[in-house]
Amino acid sequence: MRRRAMLALGAGLPVASVARAQGSAAAAWPSRPVRLLVPFIPGSAPDVIARQLAERIAPALGQPVVVENRGGAGGNIGFEAAARAAPDGYTLLLGTNSLIINPALTRRSLGFDAFRDFAPITVAFAMPHLLIVPPGGPDSLAALIASLRARPDQNYASGGNGSGAHLAAEMFKARAGVQATHVPFRGAPDIVNNVMSGQVQLGFPTLATATELVRAGRLKALGVTSAARNHALPNVPPIAETLPGFDLVSWFAVMAPAGTPPAVILRVDAAVQDALADAAFRARATADGSTAVGLGPDRFAAFLRREAEIWGEAVRVSGATVD
């Protein structure tokens, strides 16, 4: 008991005080392995991030953190499972922007509500999308917009209806006032493939999937969707420089079912923040162009509301709502 409290103290002062207030049950947390639900298949980008985080925060929690993949239906199956899980601190969720996109895509009610069913913990990483064109394509965003105005029958590639790449492109179309036809492929890698070979004229894959090809000159990058430049491709300007206010990123966050004890939330947040502050871990995890965010529980809720507005607008302008 005493030893556990000391451990909590080591993880951060505020945790220790809350833990005392919560009594022995929370102070004893975690007494068995904690599971981190990933609503996507093994090998997907969220899965790789989850496995890195799980490994890094386990020592601080004093118990293994086990990644459990519940893939399918664009994340809905896993989100629903997390929403229904007992809020005892032994279930964490790797949340992504799909959490707020998916409900906006359908008029049916899904088995979860992003605001009601989850306790925000930490937004860990963000990943911008990259506007790419074939090597022989337009040289600048302005040139692309002019080209799309002149020939509105051009196509853009996405990883599927309602994917980040699809919505980013629709948002771009709306803001720039241009037209292009949506070609929904089976997954994000197909975007790169089809734009590289010139079969489709543009696309908005996540930055990581295209970085090396841009560096090698196999693709031309005209802009990043984040408000700031990205460290992986510092020469690529933000789209916001041409279309002010354009800011759309995919993000990866640690969450828990609503009702999870605050002491647990603070301790997990402390462990994640600690990991993000570790230069070696940070370098390893952001090598692909993602950025460390480290937004704690106090600011996460506001972040979520803002994101819901942004992606909600993207879904509206795309007309992607189904059924």
């Binding site: 239906a73 664009g74 895509l105 599927g160 209806n161 309602g162 929904p184 992607a320 189904v322 059924d323």
Partner: peptide, 9 residues
Amino acid sequence: GIENPAGTP
């Protein structure tokens, strides 16, 4: 399922 080009269940 929903994983078709239209994203329709």
